[in-house]
């Protein structure tokens, strides 16, 4: 464990808590992409299948359980409890355009052709593009609530911090996982446009609006 990975995990946990708070406090999931949240739940489900069989540490097990529970909890809030506030008209990104190529790629490019490894690879590739429906939805509505922009900033920061973690582990532990690094870089690059808007607007106290 290193400071980059720890702060990355905390940023990830913070993002998930911010989203749950937003939905619970405003009793609305307006502006939140249910498709992205479905894909995040799929990411955690396919990545943490070894939760029972492969004990790493109490921290690892606890965080995995929190991530799985919170991602399904978010789906429950969005599609059941506050379903009436789900903005399906603006959440129109075609998930199959992401899931199918990612599934194909995980069969072609992986470290080991075994079920667990292919599912892990699928979850890594899927996570790198899972935010696209959310970013697409913001581009369609042209704005995002401030709390939702904080959620996205924390979520984008988590994988950026993981990149620093991989640099650290490469130099100090000789650890290197090309699949995770490449996918993590793609994932972080997808946030650049949002990061620019967030830093130039939200940090000045303005609402996050996209230039018309």
């Amino acid at each position: 464990m290193n400071v980059f990975r720890l702060t990355g995990d905390i940023a990830h946990l913070l993002a998930i808590i911010l989203l749950l708070m937003k939905i619970w406090k405003t009793r609305s999931c307006a502006g939140v992409s249910g498709k992205s949240q479905m894909m995040f739940a799929l990411v955690f489900t396919t990545r943490y299948l070894d939760l029972i069989t492969n004990f790493i540490s109490l921290y690892n097990t606890t965080m995995k359980m929190i991530f799985i529970a919170s991602s399904y909890g978010t789906l429950y809030l969005m599609f059941l409890k506050f379903r009436a506030t789900y903005d399906s008209n603006h959440d129109t990104f075609r998930m199959e355009f992401l899931v199918v190529p990612v599934a194909g790629l995980s069969f072609l490019v992986n470290h080991d052709f075994s079920p667990l490894e292919i599912l892990w690879t699928f979850s890594i590739y899927l996570e790198s593009v899972a935010i696209l429906p959310q970013l697409f939805m913001i581009s369609k509505t042209g704005e995002a609530e401030t709390i939702t922009s904080h959620y996205l900033f924390a979520l984008g920061s988590y994988r950026a911090l993981y990149i620093l973690n991989w640099v650290y582990r490469f130099y100090f532990e000789g650890f290197f996982d090309l699949i995770a690094v490449v996918a993590g870089c793609v994932q972080t690059v997808l946030y650049c446009d949002f990061f620019y808007l967030y830093i130039t607007k939200v940090w000045k106290g303005k609402k996050l609006t996209l230039p018309a």
């Binding site: 070894d50 492969n54 532990e173 290197f176």
Partner: peptide, 10 residues
């Protein structure tokens, strides 16, 4: 080359 470590990352 990826050091065969357990998948210890989240």
């Amino acid at each position: 080359k990826k050091k065969k470590g357990k998948k210890d990352e989240l």
